[in-house]
Design a protein around this nucleic acid. Structure first.
Length: 639
RNA sequence: GCCGAUGUAGCUCAGCAGGUAGAGCACUUCCAUGGUAAGGAAGGGGCCACCGGUUCGAGUCCGGUCAUCGGCUCCA
């Protein structure tokens, strides 16, 4: 009998007989391992436990605690869901059903429109399929067989997928469980009974192949875990994220609102303005320090300018237009053309470069109505923009300068982040050579900084490639904020120049960049990240003065005068209420410090300090407290 | 823009066999002068998103519009 040598992850060599399945191999390695086994990884490829080993190679048993194991199980869960849907609505056509981060979905084409009540029905049917514990088996078919099989069920979407697979010369495999079968690469769990903790989460529309010209299908989202406790933990996390929703907190803390009179055009309330102004102050301080100047360009400019810049051709659908004195105007969706006009006002020497021109620019973009979302997705927003005009030899140093700035700013807020590089998109201006040079410059700067990055092919802006910074909030979600875009195109289009050492005209290179991205969105992210409990330096109200009774209001004003000197933001709660109530409300407003002022304090000339998280901190000399909170603010401490 | 759901007081929500609207919180006034997360009482407040239809009668049924929510597409 022929023996096969398997190399295990720890380097051990295991010999098994020809034709042994991965599942059997797992048993022979250890019974505990076999119990936890989900599938195997043979020479880097995931295979079913029933896969037969017929030649030597590396074998790893993928277990329930590995990310791959979870993904395989979710894929099986998606099949079980599809099976359940077909049992309930036999006319449904299956499209695709992949796993995604934290779960899976399956797209269906069916007349019955699914409601959340239906999710329960589907879940119940899934429970039956799991209890019935069908074997999940793999079959490999040639394209003709596969076509016939799916044609017999009029599975138009699967047939389209098969066409694609056939072109790529890939093996066509299907998986069966009970009466159900599906086109699938696999691998899968050995049987449906192995799926344990699952939950269907929502139904939504989704275009076939993600293309809005195609039919809209019904997508059911779900998730599954090996352990009930993990599922519960995940659902709990969703609840926590919902509690942090900036739309809810924004209302509760009176930061901003959006009126039906202006969908996508937010109103900032006084407390939201405090946040905005602080971000702007911080931004100005950092930019001044780093050699930026600040400008402001007009909201509206002649439409002709936007033809020259290329926006009219490449960005038309997102722009608003208007008319003044029979002249066509456009409302700016970006700040760059204005910045360029500013650059062109005079002749520049090579000695003047780089020019770092910052602008907190209010831009308007027509976003599709269905995409608006609180402050995260709006139709008018303020970019913390800057345009750097520079000589080609300055490109790398300037990019590195921006990378350092972004790194500095994100660390102040305690955000970890990662970086992505986006290359030439389909609707791009300019030829490939320029794009390549620009993309190389960005890549070089990243490599010089030793930053790891992911590449997004075809995801760049129409005028140049970009580096995106994705920060991660405390619930683990990521948000694209900062970007650096290199642009050889607009300087060309606008015939920008500087006078070189040789007295001749040369073409400068432009860099577009933002750090926060948009103030509106950044405020939304901060709100969710801190769940409304902004660090003291940002808190709209930093101190709540709480006189115990009417007699103590005068003393509160005396303390307040001291806070005024240092521009510490406070409120005096002089309502005729018990202090328990005043404290509760200050807590709910996430005020960092509450000062309780009653007879004891007035007589002793001190204050009782309560912190929103640490509770009662005891008595303080007013000066001592004020110095302490002032330091906390100046150092922008996170609490 | 597309698919689905939703739209009742400032907020959270109840109401429904179609008979002209209700709670808690908030707000106002009064009483209580209170010591670390809600003191008590009284009162004001709604063109039930908007427009049209069915009906003797519509918050409730039907159609349209607008907005919001969950996604898709897109993106700061």
């Amino acid at each position: 009998m022929k023996l096969i040598k398997l190399t295990l992850p720890n380097g051990d060599i295991k010999e098994v007989t020809y034709g042994t399945t991965i599942g059997e191999a797992a048993v022979s390695i250890g019974s505990r391992l076999a119990k936890e086994a989900v599938c195997g990884r043979f020479n880097g490829e995931l295979k079913d436990l029933s896969w037969q080993l017929i030649h030597a190679g590396d074998l790893e048993i993928v277990t329930t605690d590995s990310p791959d194991g979870v993904e395989v199980m979710r894929h099986t869960a998606a099949h079980i869901m599809a099976q359940a849907v077909l049992r309930l609505w036999p006319e449904a056509k299956l499209a695709i059903g992949p796993t995604i981060q934290d779960g899976f979905y399956y797209d269906f084409d069916m007349d019955h429109s699914l409601s959340s009540d239906d999710l329960e029905k589907i879940e119940a049917e899934m429970a039956k399929i799991i209890a019935e514990d069908y074997q999940v088996t793999r079959e490999e078919l040639d394209p003709g067989e596969a076509r016939r099989l799916f044609e017999s069920h009029e599975d138009i979407y699967k047939l389209e997928l098969i066409e694609g697979l056939d072109e790529q010369d890939k093996t066509i495999s299907i998986y069966r469980q009970g009466e159900f079968f599906d086109l699938c690469r696999g691998p899968h769990l050995p049987s449906t009974g192995k799926v344990n903790a699952y939950k269907l989460l929502s139904v939504a529309g989704a275009y076939w192949r993600g293309d809005s010209r195609n039919k809209m299908l019904q997508r059911v989202y779900g998730t599954a875990f090996f352990k009930k406790s993990q599922l519960e933990q995940y659902l709990h996390r969703l609840e926590e994220a919902a509690k942090r929703d900036h739309r809810k907190i924004g209302r509760e803390l009176d930061l901003f609102s959006i009126s039906e009179e202006g969908p996508g055009f937010p109103f900032f309330h006084p407390k939201g303005m405090v946040l905005r102004n602080l971000l702007e102050d911080f931004w100005r301080e950092e930019h001044t320090r780093r050699g930026y100047s600040e400008v402001k360009t007009p909201i509206m400019l002649r439409e002709e300018l936007w033809h020259r810049s290329g926006h009219r051709d490449h960005y038309h659908d997102n722009m608003y237009f208007s008319e003044i004195d029979n002249q066509r105007y456009a409302i700016k969706p970006m700040n760059c053309p204005g910045g360029i006009l500013m650059y062109q006002r005079k002749i520049h020497s090579y000695r003047d470069l780089p020019i770092r021109m910052g602008e907190l620019g209010l831009v308007h973009r027509h976003e599709l109505s269905g995409t608006l979302h609180g402050l995260m997705r709006v139709r008018s927003f303020t970019q913390d923009d800057a345009h750097i005009f520079m000589r080609p030899d300055q490109i790398e140093a300037e990019i590195i300068g921006v990378i350092d700035l972004i790194d500095y700013v994100y660390k102040i807020f305690g955000f970890p982040y990662h970086v992505e590089l986006s290359t030439k998109p389909e609707n791009a201006m300019g030829d490939d050579a320029i794009w390549e040079a620009a993309t190389d410059a960005l890549r070089k700067a990243l490599e010089n900084k030793g930053l790891d990055y992911k590449v997004n092919e075809g995801d760049g802006a129409f005028y140049g490639p970009k580096i995106d910074f994705h920060l991660q909030d405390c619930v683990g979600r990521t948000w694209q904020c900062g970007t650096i875009q290199l642009d050889f195109m607009l300087p060309e289009r606008f015939d920008l120049s500087y006078v070189g050492e040789d007295g001749q005209k040369h073409r400068p290179v432009m860099l577009h960049r933002v750090v926060f991205g948009a103030l509106e969105r950044f405020i939304a992210i901060l709100t969710e990240h801190f769940a409304g409990a902004f660090p003291t330096w940002m808190a709209p109200v930093q101190v709540m003065l709480i006189p115990v009774a009417e007699d103590h209001v005068a003393y509160a004003h005396k303390i307040a005068a001291r806070l005024d000197e240092l521009r510490i933001r406070y409120e005096i709660d002089d309502r005729n209420e018990k202090i328990g109530r005043k404290i509760r409300e200050a807590q709910l407003q996430q005020v960092p410090y509450m000062l309780v002022l009653g007879n004891n304090e007035v007589n002793e000339g001190n204050i009782s300090v309560r912190h929103r998280r640490q509770g009662d901190l005891g008595k303080f000399e007013p000066d001592q407290f004020i110095q302490q909170i002032n330091a906390e603010i100046k150092e922008k401490q996170l609490d």
